[in-house]
């Protein structure tokens, strides 16, 4: 792969009326990077994801993937180029089997057909520990299994950049640990990962770069522990938790 950046955001701004969810954000990500994004509720984390995946289009600025502008492409087109995402609330295809859920991704996202597509789908199910449930209808899965299916489906598209939106939310600690292990395997394959998570602990062990987002701006960016130790980041997190403590 070329040495150019995998993903580039150049002064990306998104407003909803007077509310600015992304305030001239710029970001460069290289292949194989694993970046964590933290921030208080309403900081613009999910909006940032939507801007990268194409679910939202910016008011100004540009998104480039592998050097190519993708700002005007819809999510399906960006997915076919190699940007895959998971959703915080799983968007499973309820009446299809787990295998079929992933097979759609292999057909359309990865552009494969026939045996190549079924091969990829089967191997992804194994990687995400869902192969035992391959023939189950998705409607029968538990929350953890649905989160795994989100991950499996995203992997089925053959991504080079994977956006994980709160995959650990709502899971128990051992479940989170199992998931982190799967993500580590994905990262080891050279797939770039951006992971938005409330469970900061899940991130710190895995990512080599942490970005803190507040009010639609980056207020910290760098080595995870160092970022968490900066005054601005501390103030945002402690400030919010004090505020919450006082109001309850």
């Amino acid at each position: 792969m070329s040495s150019g950046p995998l993903l580039e955001l150049a002064s990306v701004t998104k407003r909803f009326g007077s509310i600015v969810v992304a305030d001239s954000l710029s970001l460069i990500l290289r292949g194989g990077d694993a970046v964590g994004i933290v921030g208080p509720n309403g900081a613009g984390k999910t909006s940032l994801f939507a801007l990268i995946s194409g679910d939202l289009s910016p008011n100004s600025g540009e998104v480039r993937f592998e050097g190519r502008p993708v700002t005007r492409l819809d999510p399906a087109a960006r997915c076919r180029l190699g940007i895959a995402r998971t959703y915080q609330v799983p968007r499973s295809f309820e009446h299809m089997t787990v295998f079929e859920n992933v097979l759609v991704a292999a057909h359309r996202g990865a552009g494969l057909r026939g045996g190549e597509a079924t091969d990829l789908a089967a191997s992804v199910l194994e990687e995400t520990h869902l192969h035992e449930e391959a023939n189950w209808p998705a409607s029968r899965l538990s929350l953890l299994q649905r989160k795994r299916l989100e991950l499996a489906r995203a992997l089925g598209t053959g991504p080079r950049l994977l956006l994980l939106d709160e995959v650990a939310a709502g899971l128990t600690e051992p479940e989170v640990a199992g998931l982190v292990q799967v993500v580590e395997g994905i990262r080891a394959r050279g797939i770039g990962v951006i992971w938005v998570e409330h469970v900061v602990r899940a991130l710190v062990g895995l990512v080599d770069r942490l970005i803190c987002l507040a009010g639609g701006r980056f207020i910290g960016d760098g080595e995870p522990l160092a970022v968490l130790a900066t005054p601005a980041v501390k103030e945002v997190f402690l400030g919010t938790s004090y505020g919450e403590g006082n109001s309850s």
Binding site: R91, F93, L103, R108, R153, G156
Partner: peptide, 17 residues
């Protein structure tokens, strides 16, 4: 398969290409 996916969850279908 695309159609069944679209029927079940359009946003999900779009997100896998």
């Amino acid at each position: 398969l695309d159609l069944t996916a679209v029927r079940d969850n359009e946003v999900g279908a779009r997100s896998v290409g």
